[in-house]
Nucleic acid binder design. Structure first.
Lengths: 219, 219
DNA sequence: CGGATGCTTCGATTATGATCGAAGTATGAA
DNA sequence: TTCATACTTCGATCATAATCGAAGCATCCG
């Protein structure tokens, strides 16, 4: 059944990664999904059997890609509806504590710290409006400016400024959109954290984490 | 997660029944799904929490319906893909012959007649390009103008003009996008067909259907 | 050739969620 | 008012499938 195939978070994350249009190896997809290679292999076999993806073997590398535009289109429609309705994933996210704590989701911060940031911005009225129409308040604009994010660089006709993104591990919302991406970039610039190579883990230094928690207080 | 919500067979069967556009009671939906009333109730609660359906209580009866045309559209796309890939456990498309023939998919024509329109436009080179980049040809622009659709009103920065949409019942493509919606509106204006109240069925008069088949010939 | 890397397959573990019996509440009808 | 019907909620049961360690196969590279 298509729904249950896509409904598994690990498979959903792999399909999401493949929606970029790039062909990825099993190892890369395992990292995207935050599962072991054997688990990923098992999932990929199911997706392939369902003709949602196809594989191309190059030596010892297996490259996987979405089977066609129709697949991508349906996935996109589903994600759009899911995003609009703020649907909760049933899995609680990856086992790896580091991934649970802070990781890359597309291009913004996810995990407990990602949720923390969102909650903080919400609690302090830096973000306002219902989840499907989040806006940055004047106070919020001031806040991010002082944090080092230039509001002027956030304008884009094609991508929302603020967008809630349902966090896989925390079952709550973290901040996506242009602002989410810019905030993560700023965290990198400040040297508070860095992305571990070939994973989605974002590793904070102890000082960086302390600074982050202070900056994005929920008290 | 949307996928897993829809992926459960009982829920899938209930959603399928609701795609007719009619509101059904919990008891009716339990029968559709082949589960007890208490199980159905539990499932319906989940679907309602996910805003995929809404309920209307009339005395002791609870009527459930899909939350909107958008939900129906996504479900239809999923089912179309599932059917095409042989992933479905149930019959392809609705059992109601009227729904199979012509129904609303979001805001455009689906079903056999919807596929017929698309095939016709394709066969006569009114639409060109690969499916992910469909464009209206000059001949096509002339054709739709003569049909009574104003090309100037079709411009939108936010929505594609032509877009293929996988048809649930026919396992083939029907036309979505602005043009698809405009064409359906025109069919209504011409009095060839009308949407049945409280359903997604589009009912053609015999004259209307004859005219439609002539207009969108595949010969 | 031997060791490293990429990946598949097997099998045991366990978290998850569908399921239904039981019980309770709300509404309708006689 | 009593009984029937529609539906919700609770909780125990258990089937399912995701998960990863272990092992094996295929390919690459020094």
């Amino acid at each position: 059944m298509l729904g249950s195939l896509i409904g598994d978070p690990a498979r959903a994350n792999m399909l999401t990664a493949l929606m970029s249009g790039k062909a990825l190896t099993a190892s890369e997809l395992a990292a995207e999904a935050g599962v072991t290679l054997q688990t990923a292999s098992s999932h990929l076999s199911k997706l392939e059997s369902a003709a949602l993806i196809f594989r191309r073997k190059q030596g010892r590398h297996n490259y996987f890609a979405l089977a066609g535009d129709e697949v991508g289109s349906v996935l996109e429609a589903m994600m759009g509806l899911a995003a609009k309705h703020g649907l909760t994933r049933t899995r609680t996210g990856p086992k790896d504590p580091a991934l649970r704590k802070a990781r890359v989701c597309y291009d913004h911060l996810a995990g407990e710290l990602g949720v923390r940031m969102f909650d903080s911005l919400r609690a302090r009225d830096f973000l306002a409006g219902p989840d499907d129409r989040l806006v940055l308040t004047d106070a919020g604009t001031t806040f991010i400016s002082e944090f080092g994010v230039d509001p002027e660089q956030l304008k884009s006709p094609r991508r929302p400024l603020c967008k809630p993104c349902l966090d896989w591990s925390a079952r709550r919302t973290h901040l996506a959109g242009i602002l989410g991406a810019a905030m993560l970039q700023r965290v990198y610039e400040l040297g508070w954290a860095a992305r571990l190579t070939d994973t989605r883990i974002i590793e904070f230094s102890s000082t960086g984490e302390r600074n982050f928690l202070n900056q994005f207080t929920t008290a």
